[in-house]
């Protein structure tokens, strides 16, 4: 066992876990994190496309622009600011890019586990 990763020594503070679970509490925020785990950074516009399409991938519906645009607004006004406040993502308002660069490792690990549990086979 790696002595630095010993289970006896917690790797995440309670505050960090509060933030992580707040971030993961909503499905749209989870899908943002799953996609960013894979690509590290993406435009807010693409994240809106991905979150909308992914959440409907198995119901064979065609997603229309109106549905996607509502999701876009909700991401921009609610979900991304929450993730920014928790220091999980950064959002460059000028370029529209959202990045996972600042995300602490324990939150990445939780998000990866949630992805396997929620979206896995």
């Amino acid at each position: 066992m790696d002595p630095e990763q010993s289970p006896a020594e917690p790797t995440a503070s309670p505050d960090l876990l509060d933030d992580a679970f707040l971030a993961l509490r909503e499905r749209d925020r989870r899908l943002v994190l799953y996609f960013l785990l894979e690509h590290e950074t993406a435009s807010l516009s693409e994240l809106a496309d991905v979150v909308t399409a992914w959440s409907h991938a198995d119901d064979s519906r065609v997603i229309e622009p109106r549905c996607r645009n509502q999701r876009y607004l909700r991401l921009r006004q609610v979900h991304i600011p929450k993730l920014v406040d928790a220091d999980i993502v950064t959002h460059d308002e000028e370029t529209g890019r959202v990045s996972l660069a600042s995300c602490p490792e324990p939150i990445r690990e939780l998000a990866a586990r949630a992805c396997a549990a929620e979206a896995g086979p």
Binding site: Y34, F35, L37, E38, H39, D49, V50, A53, W54, H56, A57, D58, A112, C115, A116, A119, G120, P121
Partner: peptide, 18 residues
């Protein structure tokens, strides 16, 4: 083509037209 995380199931795939 843009990858989804390896942990996702293949049935989770989708396409976006722009």
């Amino acid at each position: 083509y843009r990858s989804l995380p390896a942990a996702a199931a293949t049935e989770e795939g989708f396409l976006v037209v722009r």
